[in-house]
Simulated assay, not measured.
Amino acid sequence: MTFDNYLQKLELTPPAQPDIVFLRRFMARHIERFTFNNIAVLLNEPLPLDTESLLDKIVQRGAGGYCFEHNRIAYELLSSLGYSTRLVLGRVLNNNIRPVPRTHRLTLVELEGETYLVDVGFGGSCPIGPIALNIQVPQQAGLDQFWVRAIDNDEYELVQHHVDGPFILYRFDMAQYTEADCAMGHFYSHKHPDAVFVNNLVVSRKTPTEVLMLTNHRFTHRTENQDVETIIDSSDRLFTLLTQTFGLCIEHEICEFLFERYVAPKLAASELQITSSGRG
């Protein structure tokens, strides 16, 4: 598997020299074409981070992956095309400021005097286009608006515009990181018993006009005009969703396992909470 195959899957031609037009197209098409998911984590499959293995998993087999996988091959591709890239690690906050490890990989790209945040591995909240660090107003990327703001201690945070105010997705700094640092964050993310991806089923795909996102038993389809939520209450529904909506090649038996182990318990807990609230 080569970068040529990667570009062919995205129907992209390498630019004569690095430019913002290609960067925008690349990000949008990668996020639309390759799903974000942690299914391999939940199945306890090996998750090597070498480029050849990732190209096979994400590009050739279409199995998707999460940030340490998606953003690794994006980083390698852009670097091979002459883009000035920088590996960065971040702390995922989701608007809850607390001490957490650096478990998110992203890329910074220097281009034509501007620094851009390039992230193709943050699931349903991922910006589908580059976000300029020096523009301190919301920048449109698909259905969403984002901006990067500087805070204390030489840190930055990616902020998403919500109707009820700014929503901090993650924080990062300008320290020098290596693939060894990624290996540590990757190990925590798919092996630590308290890690989010070890305890929840998460699948998403984004286009410029819609967001498709599954979190355990809740599937949300968001468009410009509405959000529609569907409850996944059987392994058959899960199988249909993963194969038809997300285009994943997955066996029904695996969907039965995922449903029984991760979806059904969250569904039962949600129903119990609703029942308890009704009695209150």
Rank of each mutant, 00 (worst) to 15 (best):
F197D: 03
N94M: 03
Y262P: 08
V159N: 15
G278S: 11
H192Q: 06
A183F: 07
C249D: 10
Y262S: 01
T13S: 12
K9I: 07
K191T: 15
S276M: 06
V163P: 07
N96G: 10
R149K: 15
E256V: 15
L54D: 12
L81Q: 12
L78N: 11
V88T: 13
N216T: 02
D19L: 01
T115Y: 00
T215M: 02
S235T: 09
R279G: 00
C182M: 08
R98P: 09
T245K: 01
V59T: 11
E157N: 13
H70D: 05
I151Y: 12
C255W: 05
E155K: 12
S277E: 15
R102S: 03
Y6W: 07
Q176S: 15
G90L: 05
Q136L: 03
N199R: 13
H70I: 03
P99I: 02
F26C: 11
V196Y: 15
N96E: 04
P130G: 02
F36C: 07
L43Q: 13
S84E: 09
R25E: 08
S79F: 03
L248Q: 13
F68E: 08
P130W: 06
Q136P: 09
C255T: 04
Q244F: 04
S84G: 09
N153S: 15
R102M: 02
E112K: 13
D154M: 06
R279I: 05
H104T: 12
T207W: 05
L133E: 07
Q17K: 15
A183C: 04
P101V: 01
T178D: 08
T243W: 04
L42A: 11
L23H: 08
G280Y: 03
V159S: 15
T51V: 11
I97D: 14
I232P: 13
M184L: 09
G185V: 00
I274Q: 15
F22W: 04
D19N: 14
P127R: 05
S276C: 08
